[in-house]
Design a protein around this nucleic acid. Sequence first.
RNA 1: CGAGUCAGCCAGGCAACCGCUGAUACAAUUUCGUAUUGGAGGAAAGUCCGGGCUCCAUAGGGUAGAACGCCUGCUAACGGCAGGGGCGCGUGAGCGUACGGAAAGUGCAGCAGAGAGUAGACCGCCUCUAACUUUUGAAGUUAGAGGUAAGGGUGAAAGGGUGUGGUAAGAGCGCACCGCGCAGCUGGUAACAGUUUGCGGCAAGGUAAACCCCGUUCGGAGCAAGGCCAAAUAGGGAUCCUGAGGUGCGACCCGCACUGGAUUCGGGUAGGCUGCUAGAGGUGUUCGGUGACGAAUAUCCCAGAUGAAUGGUUGCUACGACCUUUUUUAGGGUCGGACAGAACCCGGCUUAUGGCUGACUCAAUUU
RNA 2: GGCGCGGUGGCAGAGUGGUUAUGCAGCUGACUGCAACUCAGUGUACGCCGGUUCGAUUCCGACCCGCGCCU
Length: 125
Amino acid sequence: MPGYGFPRKLRLTEPVQFKTVFNRADIKVSNRCFLILARRNELQHGRLGLVISKKNLPKAVQRNRIKRLLRAEFRLNQNLLDGLDIVILARSNMSSINNKTIAVNMAGLLSDLVRKSRAHVQSCS
RNA sequence: CGAGUCAGCCAGGCAACCGCUGAUACAAUUUCGUAUUGGAGGAAAGUCCGGGCUCCAUAGGGUAGAACGCCUGCUAACGGCAGGGGCGCGUGAGCGUACGGAAAGUGCAGCAGAGAGUAGACCGCCUCUAACUUUUGAAGUUAGAGGUAAGGGUGAAAGGGUGUGGUAAGAGCGCACCGCGCAGCUGGUAACAGUUUGCGGCAAGGUAAACCCCGUUCGGAGCAAGGCCAAAUAGGGAUCCUGAGGUGCGACCCGCACUGGAUUCGGGUAGGCUGCUAGAGGUGUUCGGUGACGAAUAUCCCAGAUGAAUGGUUGCUACGACCUUUUUUAGGGUCGGACAGAACCCGGCUUAUGGCUGACUCAAUUU
RNA sequence: GGCGCGGUGGCAGAGUGGUUAUGCAGCUGACUGCAACUCAGUGUACGCCGGUUCGAUUCCGACCCGCGCCU
């Protein structure tokens, strides 16, 4: 698995894919900024989907900013996340939080996620 | 230095690393690689107007409805813009202005007030009559009959203003001046302005962002328009309505086009391509015009995503604010950079918002 | 992205150019031994900013919210 790229095959692009993750989310991690749902897929790589609602972040600039930051975090940590379909949901009142805090938050959440997924794999096997 | 008015400009820069995406080329093959190159705004926003484009008939006629409304121009078009006029606001630079018609008709004006629309008599003023009081004449009080719009008071609004004559008291009732209306003349393309001209003699109150009248404009829907391909399925069953019918042109009638239509039962798909970015395009120069704008010419190609790209981290540096050093036209440190993200494309308007520059006005002070 | 509808007390819900009804809820009093029911009284509203008008919740314009429809 090379590098830190983020091509289209690493994204969830269809409603069916989102639905499977929502209906059978094996792993859940959250803090007061985000909620992460994840589930194992049959692929060699992870896939990312983002749910940033207009209700929680009314302005398009804010939504785009959050999405870019989340994609960057996924991109840089994707080697740890292979074989997982991940959906990240944003919670409200994110507009005042700056980029650095979000990065720190996400790093913590992703490490939690990795730990839980390993535990899940072991319990399954 | 302070308070303001108007106009214009910018939306920090460079580099490194990690990424996204369009186009082109080369490799390749099943969607991945390499190289080059492009990649948000002044408001991309609100969707308030106007157009292009697409379909409905090549968008036709009439009615209804809607919008607009000083004049002249600009424009593809506009409810926009430019120049000019009237009115209003401001000491001023300047700003605002839905600004046609109330002499075609209908309506409305609560409360207050005498009266609210072919005006009106509550108080007041005046005359006359009767009674009473005082009395030389005559005056006063009360009651009644009239006259009167000068004064008071009500109201958002009370049917010209000042003076003078006149009168019982008054009154455009007459006159002078001012104001007003109509006509003429002069200037101006026009709106309109001026007038030592003539006439009228004070009506024709307000409200048209009330109905309305006059003039001008407007067919409807919207790129989720529309077109193509693929996949799936049934060319299915039942009931009803009819041929002077039904459907479409999404208010109605005409007119035009098409030819069965509607309801229901059971079942299925909603994936891709295109539309899609070369345009009333940008930039520069010259010419015409007070200006909006137009013409000519040269040059450039300058976003095209679709769970939705245009970013993240770091360093240097410019700018601003604050703190500090005292080697003071300098050095060091900290913090900050607004509003906001294209979704078919343009022209405007409105709203949000950080800063810079220039011109001008007012006030105070200095020279 | 486009198109359309609405905003009136704590809640529902009429209305119109001239002091905004009504019901439920709340509070006070009466009735009761105490409550309920009932009766009487009471307070709180036209989303925000401008304009037209003597006067605007209503008419006009801009803004802010909320809701619906079209793939």
